[in-house]
Amino acid sequence: MRLFRNNPWLLLLPALLFLILPSYGLATAILESLRGTDGFTGEHYETLFASDRFTASFLFSIRTAFIATVLSLVAGVLLTRTFSGYLEKNIPRLSVWLPMVFPHLVWGYIIILLFAETGLFSQLLVSLGWIGSTNEFPIWTRDSNGIGIILTYIWKEIPFVILMLFPVYSAIPRSYYDLVETLGGSRWDQFKTVELPRILPVLLEIFLIIFAFTLTAYEVPALLGTTFPEMISVLSYQWFYSGSFEDRPLAFAAMTGTSFLIMLGALAAYLYLNRKRMRAMRGRL
């Protein structure tokens, strides 16, 4: 019992065992992406980068994920700072988190219900006489611009952003705002000097989480995307399951490459935050 009480590593054992799953999976993916007929090879990556389909898909994915992530962050910050007082109370808080009960798939279907060419908004516009027929409604779902995907992600991630930001906001003492005000600061100054330093680490974290997710999740693009350009996840999934075994290494290469990109971003964010922290420390000494 004493051992149990005093040994954190024993408590960490289950979690460390769990780590085998993602690390083994990722390692295998990397190995498979490098496996040639005999020994290691970079040929799959060469094929990949030479493929127009991949390039288009990659750029489209980055762009779509970036727009969705930035917009949900902006909206999330605005909503949290405007309404943080309400979020202290149970019912309003639960109402904000309601969308989290639905899987992304289902939220995608809500977007179809609302924004499809024959969706609710199109129908309402016709019955109001604003457009002549439902054919005139713009194509926002299964479109080549990824609008449906972006809409789904923004709407679905806003509650997540609020969930992550709310504790930070509720921990900011009111007196800091008053301090900036008595020193003659504007509302923008209040945001910049009081809020931003506190939320920046969390914002970066949320950005990474949402970006990594929207970049590589399969379900929503499968529901709301089109065949060209397709999101990287959809392309990889197709390659993985295509009849020919030649495509499988491409799936591994695409996913491995994307993972590395995300890891690089995470590393950059970490180093940036660390440098900031170091500077703050030096200021204190």
């Binding site: 780590l19 799953l21 993602p22 083994y24 999976g25 990722l26 390692a27 295998t28 993916a29 990397i30 498979e32 990474l208 989480i209 990594a212 970049l215 590589t216 999740a217 399969y218 996840s233 990889s236 999934y237 993985f240 799936a251 591994f252 996913m255 491995t256 994307t258 993972s259 995300i262 890891m263 995470a266």
Partner: peptide, 18 residues
């Protein structure tokens, strides 16, 4: 916390053979 950032699709593909 890192697995939050790793594409779960990559992990699943990698674990499939295993």
């Amino acid at each position: 916390l890192a697995p939050i950032l790793i594409p779960v699709l990559a992990v699943a593909m990698g674990l499939h053979l295993f």
